[in-house]
Amino acid sequence: NKFNKEMRNAYWEILLLPNLNEQQKRAFIRSLYDDPSQSANLLAEAKKLNDAQA
Rank of each mutant, 00 (worst) to 15 (best):
A52V: 08
D34Y: 12
A27W: 13
D51W: 15
K5M: 01
K25E: 01
E45S: 12
N4E: 14
A40D: 05
N19L: 08
R8H: 05
P36V: 04
N50I: 02
L32N: 01
K2D: 15
L32Q: 01
N1V: 04
E6L: 06
I14R: 00
S37Q: 11
D51G: 14
N4R: 03
K47H: 08
A27N: 11
R30M: 04
R30H: 04
E6A: 04
F3W: 09
A10P: 00
L32T: 01
S31Y: 06
I14A: 01
R8F: 12
Q23V: 10
L17F: 08
N21T: 09
K48P: 00
N41R: 11
S37H: 06
K47M: 05
N41G: 09
K2W: 12
E22W: 10
N4M: 04
L49Y: 12
A46W: 01
N41H: 11
N9G: 05
Q53M: 10
Q53R: 02
Y11S: 04
Q38R: 11
A46Y: 03
L15G: 03
Q53A: 08
D51L: 15
K25Q: 04
N41Y: 14
L17W: 03
L43A: 10
Q24L: 07
S31E: 07
R8A: 10
R26P: 00
R26Q: 05
Q53Y: 11
D51I: 12
Q23R: 08
S39F: 15
I14K: 00
E6W: 01
N4V: 03
A40Q: 09
S39Q: 04
K48H: 10
Y11K: 12
N19R: 13
Y11L: 09
A46H: 00
I29Q: 03
K47N: 06
M7D: 02
M7G: 01
R30T: 04
S39H: 15
L42K: 08
S39K: 10
Q23S: 10
W12G: 05
F3A: 06
E13D: 05
M7T: 07
D35S: 12
L20W: 00
A54D: 12
A44N: 12
M7I: 07
A40H: 13
S31P: 03
L43Y: 04
M7S: 04
L17S: 09
A54K: 03
K48N: 12
Q24D: 06
K48Q: 12
N41K: 14
N4L: 11
